[in-house]
Simulated assay, not measured.
Amino acid sequence: MSISDFITQKVEAGRKQLTIDESVDKSVQSLRRQRDDLQQEVDHLRERLEKLENELQRTAYGDIEEYVEEHPGASDAEIIQHIADSVPNRVVSHLDVLESESIKKTEEGYYPRDSDQEESSAETRGGKL
């Protein structure tokens, strides 16, 4: 509520002594809380962006940049071979991260953590998980 709305409302109610400071203090406090909440959200999003940029840097782009820095003048075939040679290591590290976050490994294979796929396929194989 704006100050003019507050004054109008109090005058219409017949109040002669207005305490504007109390209302202003409450709205200022509310705005500060909102600002603090938004700042926390911005900080969280910046951290997430930095994390994602670092992860991207560690993927093939970063790997290609490192290879070219270490081997100036490398041909397409050499870069492709380097990436092909490094895929198994990257897949293993990606699986390790995903196993802790969104997938799980069983004797039969990998399954999403929140999926009934594992249970239904285990039932079709004889009820064994």
Rank of each mutant, 00 (worst) to 15 (best):
R35Q: 14
Q9D: 11
D85R: 10
L98V: 03
P88H: 05
L95D: 13
D114C: 04
D63I: 06
E99Q: 11
G127E: 02
Q40P: 00
D25K: 15
I83V: 11
L129R: 08
E53Y: 09
D63T: 10
S115N: 01
S86P: 00
D85W: 03
E65N: 04
D96L: 07
A74M: 00
E41C: 05
G14T: 07
V87Q: 06
H94A: 12
L38D: 11
L129Q: 09
E108W: 06
A77Q: 08
N89F: 14
Q57L: 06
E53T: 12
K104Q: 14
N89L: 12
P88S: 05
E47A: 09
E12R: 15
V24W: 11
F6S: 01
R58E: 13
Y67F: 15
H82I: 02
R90F: 06
D37I: 02
I83A: 10
D116T: 13
T8Q: 14
T19G: 05
H44M: 14
Q40R: 06
E107G: 11
R15L: 11
E53A: 05
H71G: 05
E47D: 09
K26A: 14
R15C: 07
E41K: 10
E55N: 14
E66H: 12
S2D: 14
E119G: 04
K10I: 05
R125P: 05
L56C: 10
D76S: 12
E47F: 08
Q9L: 06
I83M: 04
R15D: 15
D21N: 08
S102R: 13
I80M: 13
V11W: 12
D96R: 05
S30W: 03
I20Q: 13
D63G: 07
D5T: 09
N54I: 02
A77R: 03
Q39S: 08
L95H: 07
I64L: 08
V11D: 13
S2I: 03
V42N: 06
V68H: 00
S121K: 15
E101I: 02
D63C: 04
S100D: 15
S100C: 06
Y61R: 14
R58V: 00
H82G: 01
D36H: 01
V28T: 06
S4H: 10
E22A: 09
V92C: 03
S75A: 02
D114Q: 09
P112T: 02
V97K: 15
Q40Y: 09
S102C: 15
Q117A: 05
S121E: 09
S115M: 05
D36W: 03
A74I: 00
E99H: 10
S100I: 02
L56T: 01
T8R: 15
A74T: 00
L52H: 07
G109V: 02
E107T: 04
